[in-house]
Design a protein around this nucleic acid. Structure first.
Lengths: 181, 181
DNA sequence: GGATGAATACTGCCGTTGGCAGTAAGTAGA
DNA sequence: TCTACTTACTGCCAACGGCAGTATTCATCC
C-alpha cells in the first residue's frame, strides 16, 4: 500500500465514489498536497479492492458501465492505523526555481519573466483557494479540518508572492545575472 | 530533454563534474526544489552527451574509472534558451498533510503527533539552511543567486512552522477529530 | 603492517508514476 | 439532427524511485 492508496482510502471513508468522481474530487482537494494524475486514480482503487480495503460494484447508465467503490471495515481500520504512522518529509518540485538557480546562464530579462510568472501563478492559486473558502462545502461536517489544510496552502502561496516580489526588486538592481552590480 | 536534464546542464555550466560529484552537489542544493534520486543522476548525463550538450571523458584513479562531464557550446546555448521558456507550476508532495486532511478517520492524539512532526521537520531543515548560509560557498561569485533561492526555502520552512504551531493550538481545543468542540 | 570501515563510482532490476492519446457512450442546446 | 461537452474509462511508454549489489581506493586504528 502506497500513500496514494491511503489517500484514496481516506476519500472512500467519506462516502462511496465512482472513479470518475474520485478523480474530480482529488483535483479539487487532495492534489494541492498530493498531486497524482487522473490515470493513476483509475488503477489504485482496484488495488484497494485486492487488499480487502474496499468493494467495487458495477452500475449502469444505459449501456455505459461505471464502478462504484465503497470502503470496508478492514479499510477503515487500515486507514486509522496509517494515520498514526510517521510521514515522509515534504518534497517540493519547482521548475521555476531551477531557472532562478541557474539564472547566470541567461540574461536579467529572462530571470524577471520567470519571477513575474511565479508571482502570477501564486496569485491565481490564492484566488482559487479563496473562492473555495467562500463557496459551498461538499462535506460541511468536515469544515474544521479542511480549514486547517486550506490555511497552510494559502500561507504558502502568500509566501511565494512575497518572495517573488522581493526577489524581483533585488534583481532590478543587478547589472547582469553574473554580477549584483 | 527533461527539466532534470536542464538542471544537470545548469550544474555543468558552472564547472566539469564527475557523476558522483554531481550527485553530491544535487543533494546539497538542487534537491531543495528539484529532488531526484541519485540513481537518475547516473543516467541523465549520458543523454546530455547523446544530445551534444556535454562531453564525457574517462579518468582513472589507479584501476578505478570515473567519468568527467563537461558542457559544450551547444549545451550553453540550449541552457540559455531553456531559461527563457515558461515553467510548469510548482508541485508539493506532503504526506503529512494527507494525514491531516483525513484526520477524522483517526484520533486527536495521532493528529497532534503528525503536526508536531511537521514542525520538527521544518525546524531541522531551517537549521540546515542557516548552517549552509553561514558556511563556505563552493561558488562565491554566485552568492547573489544562491541567496535568492535560499531565502525562498527559509521562508517556506518558517511558514510551515508557523502553520503547524497555529494548527496544533486549534486542535488542542477539539473534543474529537470529528467535532471542533 | 593488516584489518576495518567509510568514501568513491557506478550498474541492475523492478514497481510506480506521469502524460498523452484513444475509445465509446450519454446529455444539453441550436 | 448535428455538435460539443461530460462521463467513464484503457493502452502505451518514458521517467522516476528505491533497493541491492559490485568493486576499488582511502583513512584510521590497533
Amino acid at each position: 500500500m502506497t500513500t496514494t492508496g491511503y489517500a484514496l482510502l481516506g476519500l472512500l471513508a467519506l462516502r462511496p465514489w465512482t472513479t470518475y468522481e474520485l478523480a474530480q474530487q482529488v483535483r479539487r482537494s487532495l492534489s494541492w498536497f498530493w498531486p497524482r494524475t487522473e490515470r493513476k486514480l483509475y488503477d489504485e482503487p482496484k488495488r484497494l479492492v485486492a487488499a480487502g480495503f474496499a468493494t467495487a460494484r458495477e452500475e449502469f447508465t444505459g449501456k455505459r458501465k461505471r464502478t462504484v467503490y465503497e470502503i470496508t471495515d478492514a479499510g477503515r481500520a487500515a486507514l486509522r492505523a496509517w494515520l498514526g504512522e510517521p510521514s515522509a518529509p515534504p518534497s517540493m518540485e519547482n521548475e521555476a526555481m531551477v531557472r532562478v538557480f541557474f539564472a547566470d546562464g541567461g540574461d536579467v530579462a529572462s530571470l524577471q519573466v520567470t519571477l513575474a510568472a511565479m508571482a502570477d501563478g501564486a496569485r491565481v492559486r490564492l484566488a482559487e483557494l479563496e473562492a473555495m473558502e467562500g463557496g459551498e462545502y461538499p462535506f460541511p461536517e468536515r469544515r474544521h479540518i479542511t480549514r486547517l489544510a486550506m490555511r497552510l496552502q494559502q500561507r504558502q502561496e502568500q509566501t511565494m508572492i512575497d518572495w517573488a516580489t522581493w526577489a524581483s526588486a533585488e534583481v532590478a538592481r543587478w547589472d547582469a545575472t553574473t554580477s549584483p552590480g
